[in-house]
Amino acid sequence: MSPSKNPATTGTALVKRGLADMLRGGVIMDVVNPEQAKIAEDAGAVAVMALERVPADIRRDGGVARMSDPLMIQEIQAAVTIPVMAKARIGHFAEAQILQALDVDYIDESEVLTPADEENHIDKWAFTVPFVCGATNLGEALRRIGEGACLIRSKGEAGTGNVVEAVRHLRTINAQMRRLHSADANELFALAKDLQAPLPLVQEVAQSGKLPVPLFCAGGISTPADASLVLQLGAEAVFVGSGIFKSEDPTRMARAIVEATTHFQDPEVVAKVSTGLGSAMKGWETSSLELRLAERGW
């Protein structure tokens, strides 16, 4: 065979980060079956996260939370045309290998599942499929990017319906990026040490003032107003887990959060879509929590 006129290269940083760029301004919804996936797609979700239990149920049921059954992921892939993401446990590269073999579009190495390794995250450079990881601060975000993550989401506190932790993590990441951006070159070595982050990435953030990959928000978003809030705080898209299918009217809530995400700077639109929505998920006050998922991962 003659060499192709157009030699194609898969799995490059550009195509892996590029899919995250395509999700900007969108809502990624947790779904547990094909019916929910269809509802999410109908409502305008940019992607779905296929998992067996939404975080609120993982929190309620306890036990070890693992990667989902491949059959469930395949049924969801067959049901929708939008990207399908799935979660692997922190450090569980064998689960990630399975998810790549299943041809999922993104892997979330997620603190919502029970960690498989208390020291090491997955070497994400070794995969063709891109990874998203959670972070509570800039050092954590840059460590994950150093390991090959192509998308960062602020962790928030999943399954609580309470946006307070998401706000804390976004504000922390943004404040630390502003600090780097205003630092002079001599300070970056000590700042990299304080952040426990790779120096080249610290220098890159200092130069550009932003992460080298998109920054989305997750964990506790449960109303259109929550979506507008975190987008105004600098998130580029939102993950909504329990907030949709634990609300009174999931179809309406899903559509409303999608519209609020697009028109987050227009309070009249957010007001309109928030009107008569029915109740959001009940939620938890985070000081009452026994299990803090955001503390998983390091």
């Binding site: 157009n6 030699p7 194609a8 290269t9 898969t10 799995g11 490059t12 550009l14 195509v15 892996k16 590029g18 899919l19 990207p83 790549q100 041809d103 999922v104 579009d105 993104y106 063709t128 499929v129 891109p130």
Partner: peptide
């Protein structure tokens, strides 16, 4: 799907 995404 995404794993087949490419540059050329």
């Amino acid at each position: 799907r995404q794993t087949a995404s490419f540059e050329s």
